[in-house]
């Protein structure tokens, strides 16, 4: 065997899984263009709808949330389902690396992709407005937490399906309702009363509220409660996914 310590070997494996995913999936031109086109398309849609100059800062939290949600869930659900179908994922499971390391390496790529996707609307908005007075610390922390929860939502989808097309369909089943239920563009207070409880069981609701605090200083819930609930969702999704993987993938 090689004289390196187990920790070093784990780091080598982790880094190479991440690097492989970045070069094979995330840094492919169609995905990069997706990260740019998607937020642009949404911004344009608002512009066409209102036919007036848009308040960029007002729609920015929703566009950032959408960019992360669509980027992370679709990428991870599709890539993992694809690798499972090709049985390439079995290689990772039978390697000497723990399931925790494998899953963290796979999800880190998607989290970084989500983070980068979130930066696109922020950078674009610089052309139209000033971003002074933004709490960057809160903003980046919430971008990270939403990327994390959305990635694990993608993992939850990947564990539940067998085919790539099922992953696409199933992720839309979650994502599209979230656009309307999480207060991205329609305030939760404007939703019918019977739908409001649904908004509160979706992590994106809390992430977008933090964005509003950070960008426009106008959130609906206390900042600390938003962070607490978002971290809680992240932990629940992580443990739930790990349990599911152990049960379904190591059959």
């Amino acid at each position: 065997m090689y004289p390196d310590s187990r920790f070093r070997k784990t780091l080598i494996a982790f880094w190479n899984i991440l690097k492989k995913d970045m070069s094979t999936y995330y840094l492919k031109p169609p995905n990069i263009s997706w990260g740019i086109i998607f937020p642009l398309a949404w911004t344009l849609m608002f512009f066409i709808r209102t036919q007036e100059p848009i308040d960029v800062r007002a729609i920015l939290p929703g566009v950032i949330g959408m960019a992360i949600l669509f980027g992370t869930t679709s990428m991870l659900a599709v890539t993992i389902t694809f690798e499972r179908k090709q049985k390439a994922f079995d290689r990772l499971i039978i390697s000497p690396n723990s399931l925790f390391v494998v899953i963290m390496a796979k999800t880190t790529g998607a989290i970084l992709f989500g983070f980068c996707n979130a930066l696109v609307p922020i950078l674009f908005s610089l052309f139209f407005t000033t971003l002074s007075g933004i709490s960057w610390g809160y903003l980046f922390l919430s971008i990270f937490l939403i990327s994390f929860t959305s990635t694990f939502l993608g993992l939850f989808i990947a564990v539940s399906v067998h085919e790539v097309f099922e992953a696409q369909t199933f992720s839309n089943f979650f994502r599209f309702p979230m656009i309307f239920l999480c207060g991205l563009f329609i305030p939760i207070s404007s939703l019918p009363v019977f739908l409001r409880p649904l908004s509160h069981i979706l992590p994106l609701t809390y992430g977008v509220d933090i964005f509003r605090h950070a960008i426009n200083n106008e959130g609906n819930m206390p900042l600390i409660l938003n962070f607490f609930l978002l971290v809680l969702f992240a932990l629940i999704l992580y443990f739930f996914s790990m349990q599911n993987i152990k049960k379904k993938w190591i059959y």
Binding site: Y2, D4, R6, N16, I17, R91, L92, P96
Partner: peptide, 13 residues
């Protein structure tokens, strides 16, 4: 090379 990395082999090796 990727499969080698899964077993913690260093780049040169």
């Amino acid at each position: 090379c990727f499969c080698g990395a899964l077993y913690g082999m260093r780049k040169e090796l």
